[in-house]
Design a protein around this nucleic acid. Structure first.
Lengths: 144, 144
DNA sequence: CTGAGGTGGTGAGAGAGTCTGACCAACTCG
DNA sequence: CGAGTTGGTCAGACTCTCTCACCACCTCAG
């Protein structure tokens, strides 16, 4: 795992670079109360809302941890919880107004970083990268 | 950041898949006292030894955090600290005997996972993936 | 060769994030 | 209906990370 850079580490480096940039951009846009852990959960909320258990599973954490983070996101106004009409036990976590604005801000940063990467790699290789990663997702993402 | 899977998340998914597999493999091989945080530091120790400050910078954490993790790694026998002949203040963190064995074990798991990915993507695209990521490293890895 | 500023590292304390174990309420289905 | 499953919470503990403060050693200009 040490010497010859393995693919795992090669994946991690740009991932962290992207994450860092998004956090900087978010903070600059006034969304400075956003922790990495919160973001990793927030990122997975479906547009129609998601259950806590789903979020926990997709983020790879326990439902207790997810609940803890969603509590914070709710207090900060990023999300809201509404009863799930389909299941009396469950509540749906949905993106609230402030959350939607933060999504927009982060979307802009992502586009900016992707543009830089494209400038460095070239259109063709950037597209290849995306294609290959999407393909790889089939065997590395348990959630479809 | 939410709907259309951005490249950041696409990178993260296989990264985490790799990490999970390596941890499972390590635990199965008797290296069960290894936390993700420790591993992220351990992974960056150069074969000639590294200074704490270097490790901290490369892992993106404070030197105090790095010191905390190296303490644990040292107690578990994965690394050892030796005085740096070139600088009286510094000490070099080096991989100890048990650490070397764990590197070997993780190397096997990495090879196994890479083989699975190659089987899924094909030789050519796997090589492209590695090439593109290596290239991308130039603008996303501050450490060369 | 000496003193100022930089660098390598440690210590203490606090806060965030995560986990396990125990539990309750609502759902599903034979 | 009753047994088992699933969505979620509560409590407590541990790990990781940070900031602030500090010391020891190094470097280099004067």
């Amino acid at each position: 795992m040490t010497e010859a850079l393995n693919v795992g580490l090669l994946l991690f480096l740009p991932y962290r670079a992207m994450e860092t940039r998004v956090f900087e951009g978010l903070a600059a846009a006034g969304f400075d109360d956003f922790t990495p852990a919160q973001a990793r959960v927030f990122q997975r909320i479906a547009s129609t809302g998601s259950r806590l258990t789903e979020l926990a599973a997709q983020a790879g954490i326990t439902k207790q941890s997810a609940g803890f983070l969603v509590d914070q996101l709710e207090r900060a106004g990023y999300v809201e919880r509404v009863p799930d009409p389909a299941d009396g036990r469950a509540r749906l976590v949905r993106i609230a107004e402030r959350g939607a604005r933060s999504v927009e801000a982060s979307r802009r940063v992502v586009a900016e970083v992707e543009a830089e990467w494209t400038a460095h790699l070239g259109e063709r290789r950037m597209r290849q990268l995306r294609d290959i990663l999407t393909d790889l997702r089939e065997i590395t993402d348990p959630w479809r």
